[in-house]
Design a protein around this nucleic acid. Structure first.
Lengths: 230, 230
DNA sequence: GACAGCTCTGGAACAATGTTCCAATAACAA
DNA sequence: TTGTTATTGGAACATTGTTCCAGAGCTGTC
């Protein structure tokens, strides 16, 4: 503890927790979720699986760490951050873009809702909900509602991306789903059949923002008179 | 093709798709998600894994079919169904209760968002959104937003239940999480630390309904003058 | 420099799983 | 009966996450 060179930068040569996570992210981004195995990871790091386990507990921890690394990288413009509503929108879009770039993040977020990355999201959203003047006894429900919406849509986009992994174009993938929906029983699925026509042309980003705006509009009646400055 | 007795009720003795799904649900409910393996299923059905594959494509299809069976069982009281807002609330609570009884449903719903069970939810929600007088060009975004919220929270409750699988009491599990949150850095996680105190006492069902109500309140400004009768 | 103790490595070995394959059987049609 | 198809049961396979362990390299003490 009092040593002059605490844990002196050892020549861990290549291997370290950070290096492992970086390699994992490369595999996840490049070849998709299913390609991340300890063998593939060991091969890329030119080592054995045992060495990896020295640095990381198990696969779940590895995925959580990788996800946290991505989510931690989300930033909100300082100017925008002044206005809570815009800050929530901006942060949510940051999550959206992160999932767009790293589709596996979506799956991981919705799979393990109590990992650290989710806390980052909850904190980012919750802080702004406070700033919006939502009364204390409603903050919990409001913040978790927004977070749940984000995680829910995250899972959906993740699947969309997973489908495209097989080299299938996004447009043709959506067309395929729309065609399947259009063949459903008109008696029991009128609504699904109706929106099947809108599915291929819809804009994910706009859909995402529309949901956020819906929740923000729902917050309005709850707000205290003591609105935040500005 | 033109035979008098098309596919005449064969003596499939015990094995059939329905019997397999029923057995799968029993295992899932009784021993949890991880206990459902083709070997365990074959043992319970007193057969081999090969026989199961004759009736069902793969494990994903099995889980999707089991989930669909549960979701299809959700009903909304006829009287309540007359009022779209109440109908949405009632159906959402139906999903909540289904996940409460069959925790694995939550995980499965958020894992594969385009399975049939999700379409049932989308149809149930979407139909009521239409009835609420939401203009056509907003119906898609509104309905998917509500569905995403439901799926997102579903995933969260599923994990809560997964934790309790190990025989851990729900209260102690939440206490444990709250304690971990309370130890976070006060600088970066003020909000999470704050709601950590509320976490152990909160009511899942109320949290769920609060989110739905938030979304429903957000819909109000969108509604057409041509409100539904009643 | 030699020795002991620690951290860390690499890969073999293990247990479990989803899936495939196939020989054997049951049900039916001619 | 005989041939054909539908269905079964379980062995076999490939792949995975994980554990184990023999040893290599570093650090500090005599």
């Amino acid at each position: 503890m009092i040593s002059k060179t605490p844990t002196l930068e050892r020549r861990t040569s290549a291997l370290s927790k950070e290096a492992i996570i970086a390699a994992a992210i490369e595999i996840l981004d490049g070849q998709g979720e299913t390609a991340l195995t300890f063998r593939a990871l060991a091969a890329r790091l030119a080592t054995g699986s045992g060495a990896i386990y020295w640095h990381i507990a198990d696969k779940q921890a590895l995925l959580a760490a990788a996800t946290d690394h991505i989510i931690a990288g989300i930033t909100v413009d300082e100017v925008v951050a002044k206005e809570p509503r815009q800050a929530i929108r901006a942060f949510a879009l940051g999550v959206f873009d992160a999932i767009d770039t790293h589709p596996w993040v979506g799956g991981q977020l919705s799979r393990d809702p109590w990992q650290h990355a989710v806390l980052r999201i909850l904190e980012a959203v919750g802080g702004r909900v406070q700033a919006l003047g939502v009364p204390a006894d409603a903050q919990f429900n409001v913040a978790t509602a927004i977070m749940s919406f984000i995680l829910g849509l995250a899972g959906q986009y993740a699947l969309g991306a997973r489908m495209c992994e097989g080299g299938i174009d996004r447009t043709t993938a959506l067309d395929e789903i729309a065609a399947r929906w259009a063949q459903l029983d008109p008696e029991n699925y009128p609504f699904v059949r109706l929106i099947a026509t809108q599915l291929p042309d819809h804009d994910d980003r706009e859909q995402f923002l529309a949901g956020i705006d819906l929740l923000l509009a729902g917050i309005e009646p709850l707000r205290h008179a003591t609105a935040p400055r500005g």
